[in-house]
């Protein structure tokens, strides 16, 4: 009975199997990227970038219809443009990075909403915002898988400079020039992951797939590799359970997945071993050393 409810939809329907594979690909990249965003105190950066990619995605949608490839490439282009402009302004002026990004993403969002409202109907806007994982075709699947694979490989490549840039940037500058480029490449990876995500979840919710598992994982693991591992696992579980929830209740798949990730976050917040609320409230005797 339970087995039927959990596995049945995937055995029976191809679109559910495709959706699951797409979500797994996304979770594998989103977990590690989200972990770094959280640890760099950039948890809200994903949200800003999710808005920044809207104009490109909307243009792609208007020009080619619901073509995930066109929307992806458009989103990627505007996202990278915003990151690059903000990065240049941060380097050229005294403005801090978060302020520069806020400036450019707001312009980008306004342009995006204008495009959608001038040319499309509200239904179109909802489609762009909430995604369509249940309609993943072959090219879209391949694109998603390729972007996830690429993200993981590049992240592995810049891992050491990125970590050192977070922990001890002055030391890194004394031994290597890779700190600045590693940071910019990382921001590009965030955009890539977000864009892969909005295929499945939409621009508004793709950021949830990066941040919720990472923030939840902080309550379970102490060290960076552990956090990345747990975050990825939470992403995978959220994908599976969210799709099943969506199938049985008729909720859109994106919000369903994020709701599950959100529930896992709340559970972690309460029961987590590392600073979870319950452990904090329990009277505990202090250790010997």
């Amino acid at each position: 009975m339970i087995f039927d409810a959990l596995i049945g939809p995937f055995l029976e329907f191809e679109f559910m199997r495709r959706a699951l594979v797409g979500c797994i690909a996304l979770s594998l990249a989103a977990g590690p990227v989200g972990t770094f965003l959280m640890l760099r105190r950039m948890s809200l950066f994903g949200d800003a970038m999710a808005h920044a990619i809207l104009p490109g995605a909307a243009l792609g949608y208007l020009a080619f219809g619901l073509s995930l490839s066109a929307m992806t490439i458009g989103g990627l282009a505007t996202g990278l443009l915003v990151v690059l402009l903000a990065g240049l302004v941060t380097r050229a002026t005294t403005m801090r990075e978060d302020a520069s990004i806020a400036g450019f993403y707001l312009i980008s969002l306004a342009i995006g909403v204008s495009i959608v409202s001038l040319k499309g109907s509200n239904v179109d806007l909802l489609r762009v915002l909430f995604g369509s994982i249940l309609a993943l075709d072959d090219p879209a699947m391949l694109l998603l898988a390729a972007m996830s694979t690429g993200t993981l490989l590049v992240l592995a490549l810049i891992f050491r400079p990125l970590v050192m840039e977070c922990v001890d940037p002055a030391f890194l500058r004394s031994v290597s020039r890779t700190g600045g480029p590693a940071h910019l490449v990382f921001l590009a990876l965030v955009v890539t992951t977000l864009v892969s995500g909005f295929n499945a979840l939409g621009t508004l919710l793709s950021v949830g797939m990066m941040m919720l598992p990472a923030i939840a994982a902080r309550f379970w693991a102490v060290e960076l590799t552990g956090i990345i591992f747990v975050a990825t696992l939470i992403g995978l579980v959220s994908s599976l359970c969210g799709l099943i929830l969506s199938f049985h209740t008729g909720l859109p798949s994106g919000p369903a997945i994020i709701l599950v990730a959100g529930a896992l976050y709340l559970l972690s917040l309460c029961f987590g071993r590392q600073g979870g609320l319950i452990l904090k409230l329990l009277p505990q005797r202090h250790l010997e050393a």
Partner: peptide, 23 residues
């Protein structure tokens, strides 16, 4: 070899002491 002021380190970043020293 350069030793920055220790206050410039982000001590909340979760890496092990081994990884910091091995750098």
């Amino acid at each position: 070899a350069y030793l920055p002021q220790s206050a410039a380190l982000d001590r909340s970043f979760p890496i092990s002491l081994f990884d910091l020293v091995a750098a």
